[in-house]
Nucleic acid binder design. Structure first.
Lengths: 226, 226
DNA sequence: ACCAACTTTGGTCAAGCGTATAATTTTGGT
DNA sequence: ACCAAAATTATACGCTTGACCAAAGTTGGT
């Protein structure tokens, strides 16, 4: 069963990059805080994140949390950046290790995303990201960057399957596919009502997107509707 | 130009149903509070909603706000219920007034949703709904109910275009279509990076979903992938 | 005009919030 | 073992929050 390598993959929780200076204990505390913050975000949502609750979860003092993160904005941004980075990393790793022709790669893309939105972390974190991005330009930019990177793979696949599309047309098709998959999070994510239909949804997605990418023409995209 | 009736429609902000008892002044205050809350939600996000900020926006005393809404949970739930009800109302109105064959109705559905996610209100409110639904069972149920109702129309269209599908298969296809459209909110909503490509996305969506609904067979959905 | 029901005021309360700071303890290279 | 740098503690400040309540004002049917 070849699906195993894909089926079993889950995204690493956080990608933390910093801390050249300091002792190793400092690194531990720093990471402990970010992980506790992630847990709060996943378990109870953004509003549950406070210095005091983080400190309690880490069994440390409030002041120690502010020693690592001077302001709450600082903490939130570093947290979300670490979350997003981990998605970028894991996604890049998964999508590059296979070379089986564009159509199989599209199948794999759909499979990876469907499996990922099924996780508790992704189901809980992404809506928070979307909501926060609406009111924080910094986060909005970081989220956009993540999706830009995620679409690189889709764009390559489309180029191979349908070379005649212009850059803008191809990128719009890629966005449509990506947005469709993201939309499933709310309905078929972790403990969501349609979670039991993910296998069906995967089949529908693969069929739909394969067909879309292979058959769409520029005139279909450009058409002006009366 | 037949599109006008669709193009110009925006969803009414709130559907408020209550207040048989009391004076008319009370009704005013009640509605004033909900509208102020909605504005805060849209402008600054969920975290900006507090009794004091609402009171200030309504030019009334804090205690007066808690006179109408005993707890914040009470306020939030009534607010979101009023928001969701307005979407249900407007959507039902729009989708029932046309009888032009299933394919044209599918086009219209896509057009309505694309126009709706372009609004500031929808772009801002829906991610908040999705995030809140993750941590509040009451809201989750209400959101689900809204989408259940929205899919009734899609299900009818699919039944006409593709009668051979089973109930579950048809409903899963309807969900896929609905989820895809919702996903576009994050990318092509109000002031989002792909807002300028909504016309393209609309064409892609119409083409894709029409093709999907007309050509998909039970075996495609049921297929077990190796 | 009355008056009970409804609405509004203005204040209090404890709890939690982000932030700051001085004192203390721990770390790890020398 | 020393000691400067790093990490941690304990505490405090000012502010906002949800909630509660008694008193005063307003409404509108009788």
């Amino acid at each position: 069963m070849e699906g195993i390598d894909v089926e079993s993959i889950t995204v690493k929780d956080l990608k933390i990059t910093r801390r050249d200076e300091g002792y190793s204990r400092g690194r531990e505390g720093y990471e402990q805080i970010l992980h506790a913050s992630l847990n709060l975000l996943v378990d109870e949502g953004y509003k549950a994140i406070s210095f005091r609750r983080i400190a309690k979860a880490c069994d440390m003092n409030v002041g120690n949390v502010t020693y690592y993160f001077k302001t709450k904005e600082d903490l939130i941004r570093q947290l979300l950046d670490a979350i997003i980075s981990s998605y970028e990393d894991e996604f890049l790793k998964i999508m590059t290790l296979t070379k089986r022709g564009p159509e199989r790669q599209l199948e794999k893309y759909v499979t990876v995303i469907i499996n990922d939105i099924a996780t508790r972390k992704t189901t809980r974190v992404f809506p928070e990201l979307w909501a926060l991005a609406n009111h924080d330009a910094f986060i909005a930019e970081r989220v956009q960057e993540m999706y830009d990177r995620a679409r690189v793979t889709i764009n390559k696949i489309i180029t191979e399957l349908n070379p005649e599309l212009s850059d803008e047309e191809r990128e719009t098709v890629a966005l449509f596919i990506s947005a469709s998959m993201e939309g499933l999070t709310v309905f078929a994510g972790y403990e969501k009502p349609w979670a039991g239909n993910r296998a069906f949804l995967k089949n529908i997605a693969i069929l739909t997107f394969t067909n879309l990418v292979k058959t769409i023409r520029s005139k279909d995209i450009q058409k002006i509707r009366s």
